[in-house]
Computed example of a mutant assay.
Amino acid sequence: MFVVMSDSHTDRRVIESIKEYYQDKATAIFHCGDSELPSSDPIWEGITVVAGNCDDDEGYHDFLIKEVEQQRILISHGHLFYVGLGLERYSYFAEEKNVDIALFGHIHQPVAQRINQILYLNPGSVAQPRGAHQTKMYALVEKKGKKIEVSYRNLNHEPIPDLQFLL
């Protein structure tokens, strides 16, 4: 099981809380950008993080690819692929990189969908939710046989009932 969060926008405490809760439970923790914290912040030890459009620290990467639980995972904030307009550009990039899962942030809304066998996942925002779900949230991802279970959680680490998926 791994954890995905995004768009914390200077709220270091929320990153710290999620990290502390999962550091001995999860195989990986990802942050999809827009933390607005320095890339040298010790909070990032044990967390894979990328640059968002609000992160002007050059120590961050625009995207990374990690192997976790036999899954090849692409992590990006998504703004460079215009994810606010849809996933078409990001899907071309993800397919080119031959990944199983493509994580992204930027839109502050939960997304869990498959396109051409790749799971695209946005964990929503831990600080500034937008859209239909006005809950500060993150996602847990766990491989279940040939499917992937995605469980969105609120900041009390409780499942959000209508945001539980087996894809």
Rank of each mutant, 00 (worst) to 15 (best):
residue 147 K to P: 07
residue 66 K to G: 12
residue 42 P to L: 14
residue 133 H to V: 01
residue 57 D to I: 14
residue 157 H to P: 03
residue 93 F to Y: 12
residue 156 N to Q: 11
residue 145 G to Y: 10
residue 20 E to K: 05
residue 10 T to M: 15
residue 77 H to L: 04
residue 34 D to C: 03
residue 147 K to D: 02
residue 109 Q to C: 01
residue 128 Q to I: 04
residue 69 E to N: 14
residue 121 L to S: 09
residue 32 C to L: 00
residue 52 G to I: 07
residue 11 D to I: 06
residue 49 V to R: 08
residue 98 N to K: 13
residue 130 R to F: 00
residue 56 D to G: 08
residue 5 M to S: 08
residue 137 M to Y: 11
residue 64 L to F: 02
residue 119 L to N: 10
residue 137 M to K: 13
residue 18 I to E: 00
residue 154 N to W: 06
residue 160 I to N: 14
residue 23 Q to P: 01
residue 96 E to M: 10
residue 78 G to F: 01
residue 132 A to D: 15
residue 21 Y to S: 01
residue 46 G to A: 08
residue 153 R to E: 04
residue 65 I to K: 14
residue 5 M to C: 03
residue 38 P to T: 14
residue 115 I to Y: 06
residue 108 H to V: 02
residue 165 F to W: 10
residue 38 P to V: 13
residue 30 F to H: 11
residue 117 Q to I: 01
residue 129 P to E: 08
residue 123 P to V: 00
residue 145 G to Q: 11
residue 44 W to M: 12
residue 162 D to K: 09
residue 118 I to G: 04
residue 102 A to R: 03
residue 127 A to M: 12
residue 48 T to F: 00
residue 9 H to W: 06
residue 62 D to G: 12
residue 133 H to P: 09
residue 123 P to D: 15
residue 88 E to Y: 15
residue 89 R to K: 13
residue 103 L to I: 01
residue 23 Q to G: 00
residue 154 N to V: 03
residue 17 S to A: 13
residue 103 L to M: 06
residue 153 R to M: 03
residue 145 G to H: 11
residue 81 F to I: 00
residue 28 A to S: 11
residue 166 L to T: 08
residue 126 V to R: 13
residue 44 W to F: 05
residue 69 E to V: 03
residue 83 V to L: 06
residue 134 Q to S: 13
residue 4 V to W: 10
residue 110 P to N: 15
residue 46 G to F: 06
residue 163 L to Q: 12
residue 34 D to S: 07
residue 134 Q to L: 05
residue 67 E to V: 01
residue 30 F to S: 01
residue 54 C to H: 08
residue 91 S to R: 11
residue 133 H to Q: 15
residue 106 H to V: 02
residue 55 D to H: 13
residue 127 A to N: 15
residue 121 L to V: 06
residue 21 Y to V: 05
residue 121 L to N: 12
residue 86 G to L: 09
residue 102 A to F: 00
residue 87 L to A: 09
residue 148 I to P: 04
residue 86 G to E: 00
residue 162 D to T: 08
residue 135 T to M: 04
residue 145 G to F: 00
residue 80 L to C: 05
residue 46 G to I: 08
residue 40 S to H: 13
residue 119 L to D: 04
residue 136 K to I: 05
residue 42 P to S: 15
residue 59 G to I: 14
residue 67 E to Q: 13
residue 143 K to L: 01
residue 15 I to V: 07
residue 115 I to G: 06
residue 71 Q to K: 15
residue 154 N to L: 00
residue 37 L to F: 07
residue 5 M to E: 06
residue 114 R to D: 04
residue 97 K to Q: 10
residue 83 V to G: 02
residue 141 V to T: 11
residue 130 R to C: 03
residue 15 I to E: 05
residue 93 F to M: 10
residue 104 F to C: 02
residue 151 S to K: 12
residue 118 I to R: 09
residue 160 I to L: 07
residue 165 F to G: 04
residue 40 S to L: 12
residue 163 L to I: 00
residue 55 D to I: 12
residue 63 F to N: 13
residue 84 G to A: 07
residue 134 Q to K: 15
residue 116 N to T: 04
residue 106 H to M: 03
residue 126 V to P: 02
residue 99 V to Q: 09
